[in-house]
């Protein structure tokens, strides 16, 4: 969204308010506001329920009718850490952060070669990247599994780093390209006129402008790697298992497990939820691969 459009969006309610029949309109506006709040709360309810249940005792968590008022306890969380969730969290962190860095290192120069100083067949290259995203992961699972097994790389975090990099690379190339296209060409030409070298141009002109774009791209790559399950469940076990693998391990145990499960689910979801809340603006552009601004 351009700043002009944003202003326009903000002005819209002002225009509405200035219309005749103001009281009737504002009553209707209040009604819609209530509807919006109800919708928001309804969508949030399962998340709220997850967080609440995580603080219950197992007996309360499995009560019927559900208990909304209870004395919060940390039993669930204590059990999650007793079962040693930490290595799984660290594995997830390592796979996500390393693959995100690798993606940015590969995608940013590639996006440069597809936007500012484009190669001859930039269009074809761009579509090649997006087409790899459309190919179903399941069709590649067997050869990847056999290859990784052959190389002795099963249950190895570096395998996951490589796979997550290839999973996010097309998204990152498209996103970074859309950000680089926004750099005014006059600016780059002026720098060249002044005799600035390529590294100076990149450091002094390109990087400051695309820094928010890099952040948005990193966020999206981080989210998708952190949440990935399909490759993780088939290629890792105890040593390189990531956090969703830890979650699955919980439900095979006997007896009541709901409070523990919700505590663990809250912990593993927290990093992405917080990151997404903080970076709401970048989220839209990132999710649409740069198409929606």
């Amino acid at each position: 969204m351009t700043s002009a459009q944003r202003e326009q969006a903000n002005d819209r309610s002002a225009v509405r308010a200035a219309r005749p029949g103001r009281t009737r309109r504002s009553a209707r506006g209040a009604a819609w506001a209530v509807v919006a709040w109800i919708a928001g709360l309804l969508f949030f309810l399962p998340v709220l329920w997850m967080v609440l249940t995580g603080f219950k005792r197992e007996v309360d968590a499995a009560s019927n009718p559900p208990s909304w008022v209870f004395t919060p306890v940390l039993d669930g969380y204590r059990q999650v850490f007793d079962r040693d969730i930490t290595p799984y969290l660290l594995n997830s962190l390592m796979a996500s952060v390393l693959s995100t860095l690798l993606v940015l290192l590969l995608a940013t120069p590639a996006a440069y070669a597809l936007s500012i100083r484009p190669v001859a067949k930039w269009r074809d290259v761009l579509f090649f990247f997006i087409s790899t995203k459309m190919l179903p992961a399941v069709a590649a699972l067997l050869p990847i599994y056999l290859l990784v097994k052959e190389l002795g790389m099963l249950d190895n975090i570096w395998t996951m780093v490589i796979l997550y990099t290839s999973m996010n690379l097309p998204l990152a190339v498209w996103m970074m390209r859309s950000f680089l296209l926004e750099v005014p060409s006059a600016l780059i030409e002026a720098a060249a006129m002044d005799g600035a070298s390529l590294t100076v141009t990149i450091r002094r002109i390109l990087l400051p402008i695309v820094a928010p774009g890099l952040a948005a791209t990193a966020l999206i790559c981080f989210i998708f790697s952190w949440n990935e399950f399909f490759f993780a469940v088939n290629l890792t076990a105890t040593r390189a298992g990531t956090s969703p693998i830890f979650l699955v391990g919980f439900i095979t145990s006997e007896g009541l497990f709901l409070a523990r499960l919700c505590a663990a689910a809250t912990i593993v979801s927290l990093p992405v939820v917080l990151a997404g809340w903080i970076a709401q603006k970048q989220l839209v552009r990132g999710l649409s691969m740069g198409a929606v601004k």
Binding site: M50, L247, I251, L261, A265, G276
Partner: peptide, 24 residues
């Protein structure tokens, strides 16, 4: 409200699946 609404998308899909199956 916007923040509340985007939260389901941010929850880990595996966590969401387990939550719905067992808690809902």
């Amino acid at each position: 409200v916007r923040t509340l609404l985007i939260t389901p998308f941010l929850v880990m899909p595996m966590a969401a699946a387990l939550l719905w199956k067992h808690a809902i």
